[in-house]
């Protein structure tokens, strides 16, 4: 197992390298003359050149051949891409182009509101959809099952925008149960986060209940369930001990890989509830062509994603004795 984990970890640099390469290449295609736009309208060419030198944009994109005779072979790597690679790997993300603040600070400040929105949302939704899925799979074919499935399809078809706006209007404005929007750091944040979390869970519930119901149905028809009943086990024991344990593999597959993206926050919810999180930061960064910010977020997500992949495989082996990782 340890050997497997080490081998998988060796893949990590490859994927992270690929991610950095793709974002770098795409961004260079898109970027335009950022130095000129930073310098402003009336900038002299000299000022622009200074800015380019400051950010290292005067260097070649990938391979720095001109510097080789002067500075030796290693100077090949003194290019925009390799400097960028090195900075990313050492977690030195530089400063935001828009706000001039350190990217690490921006991320740290945005991560707390974002994660305190998405993490409870993730667990609440997982718990709700797995239990509802199990429940309706148990009563498969009866009215409660067919009703739930129909409601799920209706729920899947509701645009999330409508859910958010209606929820905000009804529960916060009409009934006054929650603050309409806003955010406070610290424990008080909970007051502002309840409604967005509830609405977030509601928006995803339709598709995830259906997904887990299908998984549970596959299992509930299996032979081992009939055997368990045949040997006289009580229903709760069959469901929770036998069925749930076997359903773990598809559940793990679909959940663990969603975890890295929790870091991105929830764009719509953050926008409507005025939560200063990372989703918002990212959209602003894309709009303002703020490469340092985008790069930092992509890089962190890529690393989390690779780790999530690894974690999934390890979880398989832990849950299912048939899976071996060698």
């Amino acid at each position: 197992m340890l050997a497997y984990i080490v081998r998988r970890l060796l893949y990590t640099p490859l994927i992270v390298f690929g991610v950095l390469l793709i974002t770098f290449a795409l961004f260079n295609l898109v970027q335009g003359d950022v130095a000129a736009s930073i310098a402003g309208k009336n900038a002299t060419p000299q000022v622009i050149a200074e800015i380019q030198a400051e950010y290292g944009w005067d260097k070649p994109l990938f391979i720095n051949l001109p510097d080789v005779p002067e500075h030796g072979v290693l100077a090949v790597f003194d290019s925009q891409f390799f400097n960028h690679l090195w900075n990313s790997v050492t977690f030195d993300f530089g400063r935001s182009i828009q706000s001039k603040q350190a990217v690490s600070g921006l991320l740290a400040r945005g991560a707390i509101p974002s994660l305190s929105l998405t993490v409870p949302m993730f667990f609440a939704s997982l718990l709700a959809s797995v239990s509802i899925g199990l429940f309706v799979a148990f009563y498969r074919g009866r009215w409660i099952d067919t009703t739930t499935v129909t409601v799920c399809v209706l729920g899947m078809s509701l645009p999330s925008l409508a859910v958010i706006i209606f929820g905000q209007y009804f529960f916060a404005y009409q009934l006054g149960w929650f603050p309409i929007q806003g955010y406070e750091p610290g424990v008080n944040a909970a007051r502002y986060l309840v409604l967005p979390v509830l609405l977030g869970v509601l928006m995803g519930l339709g598709s995830s209940v259906r997904f887990y119901r299908t998984i549970m149905l596959d299992e509930i028809r299996a032979d081992y369930i009939r055997t368990a009943y045949a040997k006289g086990l009580a229903t709760p024991k069959v469901l929770f001990k036998h069925l749930l344990k076997n359903a773990m593999i598809p559940i793990i597959t679909s959940t663990v890989l969603a975890i890295p993206f929790l870091f991105l926050g929830s764009l719509l919810l953050e926008r409507f509830f005025g939560i200063p999180g990372l989703g918002y930061l990212m959209i602003e960064a894309i709009g303002g062509r703020d490469f340092p910010v985008i790069n930092a977020m992509t890089f962190i997500i890529a690393i989390l994603f690779v780790l999530g992949n690894l974690l999934t495989d390890v979880c398989y082996a832990l849950v299912d004795p048939r899976v071996s990782l060698s």
Binding site: I15, V19, F261, L264, T298, A302, F305
Partner: peptide
């Protein structure tokens, strides 16, 4: 390659 692109945020 598919793995790599999977690791990138979709919206980005």
């Amino acid at each position: 390659i598919v793995d790599i692109v999977y690791g990138l945020p979709y919206i980005l």
